[in-house]
Nucleic acid binder design. Structure first.
Lengths: 239, 239, 239, 239
DNA sequence: TATGAATGAGCTTTCATTCAT
DNA sequence: GATGAATGAAAGCTCATTCAT
């Protein structure tokens, strides 16, 4: 009766995770979902490649083998397509992050697990991550995408807790600024989607290990005696 | 056929800095240059704030106190404006990078100097850096902006040399992958333009020091005896 | 080539009421007719409320509890729906007008009867009257709806005959222009559909009486002696 | 500086009548206004002829000898065009109505003057009146056109005052319902725009006189003795 | 009969750019 | 140098209609 109930659905999806597939009788819903999902995937590739705004509805339709008007049978706007892409990706990521936090491992292990989840997401949802990275700034200005901010705050909170506990407990250096550190780590992880090649030699786990090794112990060789390499001038004498 | 013929001047600028301003500014040329520079700065702010493509020529003109048609007395296209913005920023950065490399300090000091130059650029050319970060992907597809790639390769070369020499000379850990390491560092530095506030409590130097401290020695507290905190499970046993 | 071939049936309907329903309703035909009638009624409400062109086929289908494509099992076009609505309404009205004229009452009584029939139609066929009022102008440009004009001419003829006879016989003022008078009366009656509320305090008969009282005797109080209120300046001294 | 200040102007126009032309220096403003006015007039004709929504922006532009995009140099939307048309028409009408009310003539004279002003408007602003009549229902649903309702209420108030005073003072029949009477009169006047031909034999004043004569004294011949024509059956005995 | 996917033409609007003045 | 009118291509979206199932 209300056609908008089917198409403009980011809110319900995010609000309750109780979506369409809960009940049986998925005969039609499943067919519907497949087509929708296929379109979202196609669009995601284009959005990632050339940008959300630079991708036209006609290009998406072309790539999906239909006319532009036909897209509107499945989505009520171009925005709804990115919305579905980003909200389902963030839902999934958030679920993983939450599970990691709930496991209540030690700070170092938690941090490592968060990083591994992130690199796995980069490998498994390249397009979604790319779009999120590139378009977040623009999309977050639209009320509909307020959840982009919410979502970031939630994951920041998890990182901050692990970092703070690590510092307090002596596992991490006492002179770290948790917020600043989180930002550096977050950026270094996520931006790698721009150059990471899923078909290249490194799997997501290797990326994660390399990253974690660098992050935990730094890039400087550990001095084993008196012949430690000199610290870079000024590094620790700032101001 | 070649739109860069008259006013699209990135090539000459980059080729040799032999531009119009060599003969010390005659009245008109100087006035012209000032006006151009003022427009570039205004446009840069808008591009950074809302994106290159999302910024209309009219908005730039409005902000510059003229009508959109009048902009074309100074620039022959919207592209020429970003071109001037990015090419002059990259020229400057490249000059600094080259000077640092020419100083031939040790690897650690070179890396520290490169990082400091980058953070200084972020603080001093916020808009240019932001535009570069956000629009590079799109712009680099245009032949005119091929130099965006060239420029990145050049600076990558400098970083890689310092990292490789550091590894070879024992200053840096032997198990580092120079390319991968460079990418992590580069991203962590530059993406900070998105959240760095020039009027906030941290100056660019403080940002650099915090970054360098983390990067050189890691976030893990150094064990001083037998009570070293445990390594995160699996971190070094991957595969 | 002729879209009215199968289901666009205004012509047959109007031509002789010899339609499908002649052979007293077989199960399917009757069911079909009911469904059609229900759809017409639903559509009429929407057309009246938001306009014929502004009402989408999807909205009609939604309101009828089916999908837009399914509507085309009952009607071969959106036009066919209005056509059925207007032609059946006009058929009925025309039948009443004809009966009134056939009664050959005196001019005043004929006029009063015509007006009563019109107000009754407004009360009983709100939606049809509204659509007729609002869309006649547009629809009459389509060949298919030529009967809209025909119909108006027919009823105009009846009104004109009554008015002319009234003037000729001395019942009505000698200085009336029949055509002009008819138009004023017709408009004043029919346009009331825009503000008439069937659930309000006035029934159609009360509307008719109020209208007729005003029309026959005017709004000015009848002077009973020398103290008649003054005529409005100029009213009778035109030019 | 703010381009919207020039184009979306129904509010200022209606709000204060202190428009652009108050100060001298109309060189540019006048040229601007002429073009705008010409476009409004062209569009008005099309809107009146085929309806607001059925008229495409391209048709307006064609008729104005430009491309559809060029229209947006003068108006920021199709709505702005009707807005300018209707608001300036209503402003003018309202000014006349107000002047008539301010003259404080007797009720009959006031009513006659209001009717004359209306018929003059019909003759002088055919297109605007037609558009107002036909599109009011749709447009009034848009917040921007709330003034359509306001305007009607204001003129209704003037009519009601004159009618009520006439009834109270004995000039008009005591059994009139002022509201109902106003509606009949209003409709009979304004709907005539649909059939009035400005190049026909009747001028607006003649229309007004004919209307007023009918309205004040009715269409029935005045009985001068015992041979008064019979009242239509039931007319005064209803219920 | 009904569904739902798809069509295709057309809509309003945006915008970088041109050019006579 | 600046104006402002105009261009023309393209954008996102709508909608009556068709048709295989």
């Amino acid at each position: 009766m209300d056609t908008s109930s089917r198409q403009g659905r980011s809110a319900p999806t995010r609000a309750g995770r109780a979506g369409r597939s809960t009940r049986a009788g998925r005969a039609t819903a499943a067919g519907e979902s497949e087509r929708r999902a296929a379109i979202v995937e196609i669009a995601a590739g284009l959005f990632a490649e050339r940008g959300y705004r630079a991708t036209t509805v006609r290009e998406i339709a072309d790539a999906a083998g239909m006319l532009s008007g036909s897209l509107y049978h499945h989505f009520d706007s171009k925005e709804s397509i990115v919305d579905e892409l980003l909200s389902s990706f963030l839902d999934e990521l958030h679920a993983q992050y939450t599970a990691i936090a709930a496991a209540r491992a030690g700070p170092s292990d938690t941090i490592a697990a968060l990083a591994r989840a992130a690199f796995a997401a980069i490998a498994g949802h390249r397009a979604a991550v790319t779009v999120f990275q590139n378009e977040r700034g623009y999309l977050a200005t639209l009320p509909r995408f307020a959840y982009l901010r919410t979502s970031e705050e939630a994951s920041q909170a998890l990182w901050l807790r692990a970092l703070s506990e690590g510092i307090a407990g002596g596992e991490l250096r006492a002179d770290l600024d948790p917020k600043l550190t989180h930002r550096f780590l977050r950026d270094a992880i996520w931006v790698s989607v721009h150059w990471y090649r899923p078909d290249g030699p490194l799997g997501p786990d290797e990326m994660a290990e390399h990253f974690l090794a660098t992050v935990f112990d730094g890039i400087r060789a550990r001095g084993t005696g008196g012949d430690a390499p000199p610290a870079p001038a000024e590094v620790k004498t700032k101001r």
